[in-house]
Amino acid sequence: MKVAAVGDGPWLDDAAGRLVRPFTVSNGRTRPTVALDLMSQVMATGATPLGYLGPEHDQALELCRGPVSVAEAAAHLKLPAVVTKVLLSDLVDCGALTTKSPEFHHNPTDRALLEAVLDGLRRQL
C-alpha cells in the first residue's frame, strides 16, 4: 500500500482513496449560502474569484465551464452533495458561477412520470 507524501499533492491511498475528509473541504460547513437543488444548473461566468479558495473550488469551476447540474458536479468531484453545494455556493457568492433553478414542464410528483422513471431504472438493472 502506497501513501503519497505530504508534498506530493493530494493525500491519496491506493486502497482507501482520498484521505482528506469531505467536511474539511467545506471547512466544516454543512449549509450553502445559496439555495441549490440537486437538479439546479450551475455555469461559470468567466469571472475569476478573488483570493484562494482551494483545489476543490478550482476543480468545480473547471467542471462548470458548461452548464452542469449540482448532482453531476458532485459525482464528478467525488464529494457528497452537501459538500458540493457548499463549494458551488462559495463560487456563486464570489461571482464565478451563476445558477439556474430547474424548470419542470411536468408536475415532478406526477404519478405517470414517476412510474416511467421507475420503469426505466428497472430496465437498467
Rank of each mutant, 00 (worst) to 15 (best):
P67A: 15
M39Q: 12
C64P: 01
R31V: 14
P49Q: 04
L38R: 11
V42H: 02
E62G: 07
E72T: 03
V20I: 12
T24K: 03
T84C: 05
L63C: 00
L61K: 08
P80T: 14
S89L: 05
T30I: 13
V83Q: 14
L88E: 14
L61G: 01
R65E: 04
A74E: 03
P67N: 12
V83S: 14
R29Q: 06
T48A: 15
A81T: 06
E56Y: 07
G51V: 09
H76G: 06
L77S: 02
A60H: 03
S69N: 10
L77A: 06
L53H: 04
R18A: 11
V20H: 10
L77I: 03
T30S: 05
S26D: 13
V34S: 10
N27F: 13
H76S: 05
S40Y: 04
G17P: 03
L50D: 08
V34T: 15
A60T: 08
T84F: 07
E62S: 09
V68Y: 02
F23I: 05
R21V: 07
P49S: 01
A35V: 12
P49W: 04
R18F: 03
R29Y: 09
P22T: 14
G51Q: 03
K85G: 14
L77H: 02
V25C: 10
A81K: 00
L77V: 05
R29N: 12
L36C: 04
V86N: 13
K78L: 11
P32D: 10
A75Y: 12
E62R: 12
V20M: 13
V34N: 08
V68T: 08
P80L: 03
P32Y: 07
L19N: 12
K85F: 12
S89Q: 11
G66S: 06
A75C: 13
L63W: 07
P32F: 08
R18H: 02
R21Y: 08
M43P: 02
A44T: 01
R29K: 04
M39T: 03
A81P: 01
P22F: 08
E62A: 11
G17A: 15
R21M: 14
A44F: 05
S89D: 02
V42P: 09
P55T: 12
A47Y: 01
T30L: 14
R29H: 06
A47T: 13
P80H: 07
Q41S: 15
L88P: 06
